[in-house]
């Protein structure tokens, strides 16, 4: 079992064009490290230099925005579905 991660258009250059990839990890943070192993560079698009989740992306675990569930510490288990979407925002 693994965790399915849906990848937005803007990050598909890291996944060979794949719309979804599998990863593993007990937390969102561990999952992103795992993804970066298979898809080098993707972590830098999700995590800031300060180690937080980038404000330009929204990450959902089973349809819950992780900002409300502990952000990078959000616990994951096999079979969870993670969706990454770019925030649509501006000034």
């Amino acid at each position: 079992m693994a965790i399915e991660v849906k990848i937005p258009t803007i990050l598909r250059s890291y996944t060979g064009g794949a719309k979804a990839v599998d990863g593993t990890g007990d937390t969102l943070s561990a999952l992103i490290d795992n993804l970066d192993g298979s898809h080098p560079g993707i972590k830098g698009r999700l995590i800031t230099d300060d180690g937080g989740l980038h404000r330009f992306v929204n990450v959902y675990v089973n349809d819950e925005d992780v900002r409300f569930t502990g952000s990078l510490d959000t616990a994951l288990k096999d079979g969870d579905a993670v969706t990454i979407l770019p925030a649509v925002a501006g000034g």
């Binding site: 929204n58 959902y60 349809d63 925005d65 900002r67 969706t83 979407l85 925030a87 649509v88 925002a89 501006g90 000034g91």
Partner: peptide, 18 residues
């Protein structure tokens, strides 16, 4: 954001839309 200088899709609405 309900703002004259900023906009943002609500995060749940954004997921639903996609």
């Amino acid at each position: 954001a309900r703002s004259p200088t900023f906009y943002e899709f609500d995060s749940a609405d954004l997921l639903q839309l996609y």
